[in-house]
Design a binder for these strands. Structure first.
Lengths: 338, 338
DNA sequence: AGGTTTAGTGGAACCGTTTACAGTCGTGGC
DNA sequence: GCCACGACTGTAAACGGTTCCACTAAACCT
């Protein structure tokens, strides 16, 4: 492995000059620069990142902390982040807490302090005040995705408005008997998201003077399978809603499958609306509130990068950036039958 | 930020002793060790990884290169790897090539050479001979997932056997008119996987004396949506297969949706079998050949770690480790109707 | 013409660890 | 009583870059 000394020697300059030539910092004559560059190429020289990082304090490495990777939303977010980073030569360190507080603490307490990271993107993390303090005291840029994370910059969608929009769509079609599939099975995970989407649902219902039946609010774990099972029970009851708002597309698809298995036609006998914009929704004809997780990830990365480039951000910055969502009407919703 | 000097000073020992105490390398008196440990704790000392890596040459960081993160298989593989690594204090650097050869070259050519990585796990990568040579010349452990990658250790399932098993299951039920949904839309991606699963299908068909109809082999892109559309065309034709083997669960679910939309009952009018063991398959009653991507990822990580711990591996190691799959029979397959 | 800037350069300190080396001290063997 | 040995320790040299500083020579002022 060639080092910068080898390059310098081969180019007939000092290591200082070689470094300046390679990094474009400081003045270097055209001739010297050219010789250094050629030497570097011939030697297949690549600067050791660890050495660079140690001296300069910048590692060109940013950490992404999330509770899972094998779920639609997180996969998309990471994709968005990764796409944004690869172009500017940053690398991406992934920390999967698996929703375990133990792991989360280990990551927040130790891993992030090893100075290998220039900045951090926590995704949908349930952070305690102490954890946030600790995170921010690292004195590196932090931009979260999802939220809320009081005190840290975030990028997210308006969960409550999303719930309200979906509900309003159903009410607008004439539905009055509306059930809701929400999250909350795992108290640690998706806590706020669940609550605020349901909040939007409830708000919109009461605004329209409609009642929210407790037994029509299904607590699920955000998977298709669980939602399917619960919806089957719900839809087998004597009284049935005419519409269901599910807090995610996966759960909405579960509801559709359950309805079909029970011989209920969608949307004739049951309207279903979800949230996400999951690709699979298309084949189901699923009406949904589309969010753009890749864009959320990309946006977080961008904000991070500008903070990294610029001096410390002004104080009047937009702390919580809210990205738009979009109602996509397909064939799973219609006016109530009969 | 406290450095090891601060710890040493506080504990009243030299930095050498402090380092030895903290790392458990070399002899240190119990008293000194205890003082150092307390000092470190009180100072919230965490060793700088960049410094450690620079000096020791070991970064406790392993790279995962893959063509996408937002697909079921990759999400699972990464989860398996991450779970395995977090326990032993290794970190995970993620490189998403997005299926672009440009990015792949950048990663293989530059990124991996910056000495930030102790080892590399390429996942489902289509590597040229030159790329493999370059990868191996880094002189660090490499264990791939999926394959084949001639010359590098890999962990994978037997794709061909998987195709054969699925096909045999259908034939065993009495089906003779069998269609296949395969990949291959994107020539770069999933190349081998597609070919070998289809190979298994064709082999099993001919073994049973059955013909493979060209127009019953659907080339799809491994998504539910595309498979759905193609299956709809297939199943609307005058002649219909009585069974479909889809090379992935997502595509199989697309076929089931298409069948239902056309009023064909599954499995009465059409049997469908997939490959993967996708969680969503359960609600579809999907029969499938289950593979365990998390286990594949975990296994790759384990092999890597042992190679990292032990001296260079013996030459007679098992180059390609094949992990088992499992037929899961649910309600999407049955003997042909009538 | 003399004094200041400025482009270009080399040398060396430094980033925060690990680790090779040399040394001190007490202990046991003879 | 001396020597060898082991346990323990401190000092300093790396690791491979970046960056500060001092310096030269040419160019630019007044």
């Amino acid at each position: 492995m060639a080092g910068i000394r080898d390059v310098a020697a081969k180019a007939g300059v000092s290591v200082g000059t070689a470094s300046r030539a390679l990094n474009g910092t400081g003045p270097v004559s055209a001739a010297a620069r050219e010789r250094v560059e050629r030497a570097a190429k011939e030697l297949r020289y690549v600067a050791s990142y660890t050495a660079t990082a140690l001296k300069s304090g910048r590692s060109r490495n940013i950490g992404v902390i999330l509770p899972a990777i094998d779920r639609w939303f997180y996969g998309k977010v990471v994709t968005g982040i990764a796409d944004e980073l690869i172009d500017v030569g940053y690398e991406l360190a992934l920390y999967n807490t698996q929703g375990s507080h133990e792991h989360q603490e280990a990551v927040l307490g130790d891993y992030l302090w090893r100075q290998r990271l220039d900045a951090v993107i926590p995704v949908s993390l349930q952070l305690s005040a102490a954890e946030i303090t600790r995170l921010l005291s690292m004195d590196r840029p932090v931009v979260g995705v999802g939220g809320p994370m009081p005190g840290v910059l975030t990028v997210s969608i308006d969960q409550s408005a999303t719930g309200a929009l979906a509900t309003a769509h159903l009410i607008g079609l004439g539905h009055r008997e509306i059930a809701h599939v929400t999250g909350g099975t795992d108290p640690e995970r998706d806590f706020h998201l669940t609550d605020s989407r349901r909040g939007g649902f409830e708000g919109e219902m009461s605004r329209a003077g409609l009642q929210v039946r407790d037994d029509w609010v299904l607590r699920s774990d955000f998977t298709l399978g669980d939602s399917y099972r619960q919806a089957k029970v719900l839809l087998s009851g004597r009284e049935r809603p005419t519409a269901v708002f599910a807090a995610s597309d996966e759960m909405a698809m579960g509801v559709i499958l359950a309805a079909r298995d029970l011989g209920l036609r969608v949307p004739d006998a049951l309207s279903v609306v979800g949230v996400d914009g999951h690709e699979m929704g298309e084949a189901f004809g699923l009406t949904t509130i589309r969010q753009f997780p890749e864009r959320q990830g990309a946006r977080a990365a961008q904000r991070l990068l500008t903070h990294l480039a610029d001096p410390p951000p002004p104080d009047d910055i937009n702390l919580h950036e809210v990205l738009p969502t979009e109602l996509v009407v397909r064939s799973s919703t219609a006016a109530p039958g009969e």
